[in-house]
Write a protein that binds this DNA or RNA. Structure first.
Lengths: 153, 153
DNA sequence: TGTGAAACTATTCCGTT
DNA sequence: AACGGAATAGTTTCACA
């Protein structure tokens, strides 16, 4: 489905969409128009979901990352529904996964500092009951970003 | 430093950078030129780090997310150095944090399926020694994306 | 696929509030 | 100091070979 050129284009676009098409075209030995067509195709076929701006965490006063592991026993449809609503309404919760095993969830929070965790915690427990909740503060980010491997597609 | 207009612009740009400036300008009751100036300022002052393409996980054949919790005792400078090199060289590892407590790390992996976890695991342990390593497979993503709260800056 | 022309943005300049 | 309107410059995209 995808050739090496497509994968290179995707890899470059994942890092930076502001590069002129001519530059990307040169990188994959193609004319700007041919490259533009490919990018269009990649978009039409859904490989590129969307183009977004990545904000600076420090400048946005959000340098702190906290992971939350929550356990629950009551896993009714109502509970899940309310949980889903709660996490989507709290912008500081940026990522939520349901994990293997017995209804554990992992939440990723971005905050101005660890003190702000309390506010999010209260907002969460005021709406939903949990069996257990443990916070793990990130002391250092060794790797981050939105880039995915391109060699599988 | 930032007013409501700036925050709205950042929120919109975080979701989609392809909207015409005129549209964003209308949303914040500004002329295209004034809006363009604000975006430039936001970029110059470092609020916007970069603009990137977000790829579709399913289309890229990477539907599986796995979290890894690794524990170590040997936390020498050499070990950390090699660990850092290893995770940065493995593209399936998209995020790594050092957590509070006794040198635990959390790794986020994106993979074609759970079977591929073994390959990453082997690549990792062939280079570094760990005390313990537990994998947690994401059964469902309830929330994801790169958008951050804008009301703190 | 590549080349060239056209159209569309976005940006810059200028006068104004 | 910041805004709105008109001119400019740049990029992308279309038509055709």
């Amino acid at each position: 489905m995808l050739d090496d050129r497509d994968r290179t284009i995707l890899a470059l676009l994942q890092e930076d969409t502001e590069k002129p098409v001519a530059e990307i075209a040169a990188r994959v030995s193609l004319s700007p128009s041919a490259c533009s067509r490919r990018i269009q195709r990649l978009e039409a076929e859904g490989y590129i979901a969307r183009r977004v701006a990545l904000l600076d965490r420090a400048r946005m006063k959000l340098p702190t990352t906290i992971f939350l592991i929550v356990k629950t026993q009551r896993h009714s449809a109502d509970w899940l529904d309310e949980f889903r609503r709660a996490v989507s309404s709290i912008p500081e919760i940026v990522e939520v996964h349901r994990l293997t095993g017995n209804f554990d969830y992992i939440l990723k929070l971005v905050l101005p500092d660890v003190e702000h965790y309390d506010a999010v915690y209260k907002r969460l427990v005021s709406r939903i009951e949990f069996f257990d909740m443990s916070a793990y503060i990130s002391m250092e980010t060794l790797k981050a970003g939105s880039a995915l491997p391109t060699h599988y597609a």
